[in-house]
């Protein structure tokens, strides 16, 4: 099964999750997702997701100069973002539980 197909549905949740602990810029978010084991995540879709979450009002954005030189656009969760993360987490847990039960039943059968 192709993980990249699964990722498409949960990328919002994954991005919100890596921003929960600390604000990050696009490439940083990408690295954190990879470090967490989501190797198949497509670069462009992470940037697109950040953009959409920002447009939806779930993220704050600010520019900060980096040590290496270029300014970087940081994203962070605002109140809406935290609420969205909480709701999405519930939805995911429910979904994952359902799937797990389904798969267990199939295995048991």
């Amino acid at each position: 099964m192709d993980t990249s197909q699964l990722l498409k549905g949960v990328l919002d949740l994954a991005v919100l999750a890596v921003l929960r602990d600390a604000d990050g810029y696009g490439y940083d978010v990408l690295r954190r997702l990879r470090a967490a084991g989501l190797d198949d995540v497509a670069d462009a879709s992470v940037y697109g997701t950040l953009r959409r979450l920002f447009a939806a009002g779930a993220l704050t954005s600010y520019v900060q100069p980096s040590e290496e030189g270029p300014h970087r656009k940081y994203y962070g969760l605002n109140k809406t973002g935290h609420e969205l993360l909480a709701r999405s987490t519930q939805t995911w847990n429910h979904f994952a539980d359902t799937m797990s039960v389904l798969l267990l039943e199939k295995e048991a059968a």
């Binding site: 498409k8 990328l11 497509a42 670069d43 462009a44 879709s45 992470v46 940037y47 697109g48 997701t49 953009r51 959409r52 447009a55």
Partner: peptide, 18 residues
């Protein structure tokens, strides 16, 4: 590394909801 510019743009477009 990133796919063709068209693939990149399509991924971005889909994810951003354009």
């Amino acid at each position: 590394r990133l796919g063709t510019p068209r693939e990149y743009a399509d991924e971005l477009r889909t994810a951003a909801g354009y």
